[in-house]
Design a protein around this nucleic acid. Sequence first.
DNA 1: AAATCTTGCTTCATCGATTGAGCAAGTGCG
DNA 2: CGCACTTGCTCAATCGATGAAGCAAGATTT
Lengths: 336, 336
Amino acid sequence: MSLDRQQKRTTIYDLAELAGTSASAVSAVLNGNWKKRRISKQLAEKITRIAEEQGYALNMQASLLRREKSHIIGMIVPKYDNRYFGSIVELFETMARDKGLFPLITCTRRDPALEIEAARTMLSYQVDCVIATGATDPDRITELCAAAGVRTINLDLPGKLAPSVISDNFAGARELTRRILASCQQRFGAMEPLMFVGGRGGDHNTMERLRGFRQAHADHGIDLDDDRVIACGYAPEKAQNALQERAASGLPFSRGMFVNSTITLEGVLRWVRLAGPVSEQEFALGCFDYDPLVDLLGDNIEMVRQDVPAMLTRMFELIGQGNFEPRVSEIPPVLR
Amino acid sequence: MSLDRQQKRTTIYDLAELAGTSASAVSAVLNGNWKKRRISKQLAEKITRIAEEQGYALNMQASLLRREKSHIIGMIVPKYDNRYFGSIVELFETMARDKGLFPLITCTRRDPALEIEAARTMLSYQVDCVIATGATDPDRITELCAAAGVRTINLDLPGKLAPSVISDNFAGARELTRRILASCQQRFGAMEPLMFVGGRGGDHNTMERLRGFRQAHADHGIDLDDDRVIACGYAPEKAQNALQERAASGLPFSRGMFVNSTITLEGVLRWVRLAGPVSEQEFALGCFDYDPLVDLLGDNIEMVRQDVPAMLTRMFELIGQGNFEPRVSEIPPVLR
DNA sequence: AAATCTTGCTTCATCGATTGAGCAAGTGCG
DNA sequence: CGCACTTGCTCAATCGATGAAGCAAGATTT
């Protein structure tokens, strides 16, 4: 790796020399508390000018080493490349910056080992706080951080040891299911039990969504066999294969499907395309997650949009209040 | 902000005391060069054990302050929430980590001021190298970093002062245009000049894609009026409004459209839905960018997928070779 | 005129990890 | 036995920014 620095960086000592003053004065001026330190306006202006001329950039590492709080806030995300996590990350950055915090984001591709590794790295970088988003084992992260005196908040998936901010999966899934059933009624002339595709049986969100899914069926007095639930994970290929197998198995198949995320939807649609009966026109689909392009192109696809701004607002509220009790905040999703 | 640390963090001095040795030995053991520093295996093992027991985490700030290279590699991206940049960021993180570099990513939401601010912040964090992705003013970033002795590479959009890795926009656009024209021929029985929607007239990629767009028309001997080009920016609302106005203007309108990104496609589809003639079935669309869900749902939408893995591979090659000549590497996109 | 206060700086220790220099004890060789 | 060499460590300076403590010169009070 040829990443060798060209010249030595300008430091406050260089500036002090150029300004004929001390490093301490330069530091005071550049970090804004020169009034408190009784530096004259003239000297302050002179130093500021010279710093600009020299293109001085603070050495954060040195600065952070000295300060007690780093104002760095870490976020661990499973994936970047879907709209849900993409918008979480983008808004998180913006909000963190607005609050004077420096956002440090790391993506773990749903790899539990990388998750722990990422948390450890964040601690090394002296983060003040870690947000564990959609983590497989949020409590492990909380423990690790707690050992270093760093607080954590869980986002998207809840944990037992730190506060969690998640969607109201039950209510959202119940309403989404209701809509898919209504769409079946309208388009096929009758309601039939739906299938549930994607997610992991063990994860909290999937369990809650399943509860809403079941409740909506019960609301309409529709019997639901357990074998209509295909919690095959989130990856597209897994959903595609699972549907393939299911279709081949001879078990009853539904035209209405509750799909657990846009990622999974990719697999479902691929199956419909390649191996499925005819076209997606013959299905009534619903997706727990939002993607604007699907919304525009998928005529028969209902979507639930998780309320990312509300979730992040709540999260920063908790931080602001210094509230780190392990309570769960459920944010209602936006239905379209 | 209540982000107060709970207890003091464990340092090498604490570990030294516990192990009955010196901080120097602890440091040598923990950063792996204990053999070079002639520390005995016993002591090394003892220190390692104690460090683990105490949940010790290195203080990166202190470590980086002392070292010459930080091994931090910065990336500036305009947006997270679309598949193209999402996959760039995700793969960049993975590849950087594999090469022993620490990825530091920042999103500027296409705000030129934030771009400069982000570059400055990266310098403060002592990055060894900055990747400016889709930057509005990459040369400004290069200058700023050069003043601090930090090299830069441009990705997606080229600059004049640093090496650039971009898609072969001309060839990609020419082929995409050819396909849209063929689709027009097949579906409407005749080729007609297409419209070009989205992008900024001034930006390199848009200019090159326009060149390919024009060339493909010329290849088929189709006359193309300049007023079929609507470079209204990338944002969905802008595209939607521009099409609205265009339709109202009475100028000739095309059923075939070259759309400059998936983001813009969102606006185009919205226009089709809300104000457009009937449905997207009556259009032949092509998009310079890839989204798997559009690929599955958009029956008449051709897509060009920029070859993100190849682009990043090339980028890391340049870094590895220490090659910082301002040359442009054009990576052929993948056509589907 | 002496005592006190204010202004505008400078000095120096400190944060935690790293590393060149150095030192003491042990080993090997003639 | 004396000298060189090796082994296994410790010491102390250093990276750059920060801020408490201190100090000198001038202003103000008694």
